[in-house]
Amino acid sequence: MFKILEKRELAENIVKMVIDAPLIAKKAQSGQFVVLRTHDKGERFPLTIADYDRDKGTVTIIFAQVGKSTEHLGTLNEGDGILDVVGPLGVASHFDPAIKKVAVIGGGLGCAIALPQAKTLHGMGVSVDMIAGFRTKDLVILEEEMKAASANLYIATDDGSYGIHGFVTKVLQDRMDEGVNYDLVVAIGPIPMMKFVSELTRPKGIKTLVSMNPVMIDGTGMCGGCRLTVGGKTKFACIDGPDFDGHEVDFDGAMRRLSMYDGMKERSEDCNLVKQAEGKK
């Protein structure tokens, strides 16, 4: 059992939990994830580590209650235990120390995963432009934390109810048009967002890292359920990733695999960016 030390609702349906897991905290690095199981008949599912504190021995997870398992996790309270937390899994993000200017882009809940990357880069002395996109004002999370981990924070909402009106791709495009030269773009969020960001940066040859979060069982390379096509080759997100070169990832294939159990369990990939892109076609 892994005790929940702190629980907070960051926005509607979006929950942050700080978990007592000293051994995991000791090893965790940004970009890595844990696999959880909340009860005896529950499934195993991955969540990216949003933060960790080696001194206190805690890891933080932030999740949206969008399916049976995350909903059940959301019913647990401070003082309760999570049955299984396994990690830290996956390859930690690696950043070239020569990098000077970076855009870290988070989409919705993806901001929770983008934040530790921004923190790491910010801590390395890199100038970080944090671009965070949300559907609407009520869903904005982690604003203070993102501000603290970046040189400039740009918040955008799809409906214009807060910050810049539009998608993160618009903000990125505007910045690039203004002449900002990014050495690296980190994009974490819904697959369509990562795909469109990668398409924006591809012609400019800006290295773009994305974080993939496919269906997974063990998280140790054993099942191959998390496989995706990267640069024409099959890769396992759990042991080869979860970070990959956005210009190499077959996002459409990844999207298809993610939709596999639709109808058997709910997933909210209700992405406005896709709707707009499809409307344009």
Binding site: K41, G42, E43, R44, K68, S69, I217, D218, M222, C223, G224, G225, R227, L228, T229, T234, D250, G253, R256, R257, S259, M260, M264
Partner: peptide, 27 residues
């Protein structure tokens, strides 16, 4: 990499370890 292609490991792990054959009693 089509959706309905499994490694035997995944197929068996779902069924044996995770009791998917008892879905929806198991998640």
């Amino acid at each position: 990499n089509y959706n309905d292609v499994y490694s035997a490991n995944e197929f068996l792990t779902r069924s044996n370890l995770m009791y998917a054959y008892l879905y929806p009693e198991y998640d």
